[in-house]
């Protein structure tokens, strides 16, 4: 499912956090949203997945206005991995991942063996197949993050929204997570912090600064010394990575601490 955002603005108690942002995810590409803390990445994503109401602009899914699509219909096509995954109640990992099947099941319909297969293969995808019967609350932060990704995969989405999916993960699982996501071969829009990872995995980047798109384009076009200096106020050196299509970025510490 393609996502098109046109002139989207979002206000948070009178303050405009996102200002007339337009972006697009289509042709099953992996698109990243970069930018410093507080630049409005999460707010933008949350208004796309309908937790926040935009104050202006439109959001289109496959060219259709978001307001004309029910939550349930959208959830069959779009999955979200957000940063909010606290739980006060004790569910097992399998039960959590099975929640991903919710939009596909009617109220009185019970889960079929197909749903269980989907859940199991989603757990395999994130390398957590042995954890199915563990209690979710007993998992570490990184494990929880992977379970949330498994739940999103179980939704069988055509569009995946990720809000800093590599938080809490060690190097191996950061790479693994992004590889899994890439391998799904669907449209992905992810807020990321790590510019190197973004350059390695993403097809297209949007850089957000103070709620506005500062620059956009293919990783090697966008991630330049000048842009990084302007957006993050950090000096750096950039070279082509010897072992991947990504970039290596080496930063200088900020002058004023």
């Amino acid at each position: 499912m393609d996502l098109t955002v046109k002139d989207l603005s979002v206000k948070y108690s009178e303050k405009e956090i996102v200002k007339k942002v337009s972006l697009e995810t289509s042709d099953n590409s992996f698109v990243a949203l970069l930018g410093p803390n507080g630049s409005g990445k999460s707010t933008l994503l949350r208004s796309i997945y309908r937790v926040l109401k935009p104050s202006g602009g439109i959001i289109l899914f496959d060219g259709k206005d978001s307001e004309d699509i029910s939550n349930r219909k959208l959830a069959k096509e779009m999955a979200v991995v957000s940063q909010m995954n606290n739980l006060n109640f004790d569910f097992t990992v399998k039960e959590i991942v099975m929640m991903g099947r919710t939009p596909h099941l009617n109220i009185l319909q019970s889960e079929s063996s197909k749903d269980y297969e989907i859940v199991n293969s989603a757990l395999e995808d994130v390398g957590m197949e042995d954890y199915g019967n563990r209690s979710y609350t007993s998992l570490s932060g990184g494990e929880k993050q992977r379970i949330m990704l498994a739940r999103a995969i179980a939704q069988e989405p055509k569009l995946l929204i990720l809000d800093e999916p590599t938080n809490h993960l060690d190097v191996r699982f950061q790479l693994q997570t992004l590889s899994i996501v890439k391998k799904l071969g669907i449209n992905v829009l992810a807020a990321l912090h790590d510019l190197t990872l973004a350059s390695q995995f993403c097809d297209y980047l949007y850089i957000l600064k103070d709620g506005e798109i500062d620059s956009q384009g293919k990783p090697d076009q966008v991630l330049t010394k000048e842009v990084i200096k302007r957006v993050y106020d950090i000096e750096c050196e950039i070279v082509q990575a010897p072992n991947s299509k990504g970039l290596l970025i080496s930063y200088y510490p900020p002058q004023t601490v």
């Binding site: 997945y49 937790v51 929640m99």
Partner: peptide, 17 residues
């Protein structure tokens, strides 16, 4: 009800009104 326990964001993105 299960989805509700998973939190507001999760419930909405799982298609629950």
């Amino acid at each position: 009800l299960n989805t509700m326990l998973a939190g507001d964001e999760a419930a909405i993105t799982l298609g629950i009104n």
